[in-house]
Amino acid sequence: MSSETNQPAALQSAPEPLGRDDLARLVARDIAPGSFVNLGIGQPTLVSNYLTAEQNITLHTENGMLGMGPAAEGDAIDGDLINAGKIPVTELPGASYFHHADSFAIMRGGHLDICVLGAFQVSATGDLANWHTGAPGAIPAVGGAMDLATGAKDVFVMMTLLTREGASKIVEACTYPLTGVGCVTRVYTDKAVFLTGPNGVTVRETFGCTLAELQELVPVPLTAAVP
């Protein structure tokens, strides 16, 4: 690589930015077989649509269940069987139920392999802001976000790279209130997959842009990830 701003030959690149479903498919593909996973409310929930039976993934929901199945429909809807987003879901063979302290011990004790969360911002060192805008008059609500961010072995974020106003959500330092410090390991966006950690931000692949074009959008130094 002659310079950081040139497109390295090794860097994977797709011709177009990824849509939400393509991004969910990519995250699903990257989850190792046999993993225990918690999918956050919103966009991360889409990932479950692309997990395959062969992957043998066990989904955790923080209101007290492992082995969560797809959303319930019709006669299968049961008010006593909901997910963290309070949506009726189903149970798969081998499911288990447990109370809230046990459920959060599963997170906080480091037993979950991966959680996938949405975000307002991620910093260059993996700080996460995803629970509160801090706007005056906004009613704060944190739920299990801080526990997931600090407890899972790997924290994946799914988000668009840019805000509606065109600002990068990958930032030098978060301006929104933090959810967790140095907790994010990977960021999946429509334009690239970023790896974050104490050594800064590396780019695993790009979608519809070169590394140099990506660098124009993101205010932290980017380098190509070593494959």
Partner: peptide, 23 residues
């Protein structure tokens, strides 16, 4: 929301895992 915005209810916001573990 209405009570909170009117200043008629106090809120102690606790991360869910801390809430469960404190209980």
């Amino acid at each position: 929301d209405a009570k909170y915005k009117a200043g008629e209810i106090e809120l102690e916001l606790v991360p869910q895992g801390n809430l469960a573990e404190r209980i």
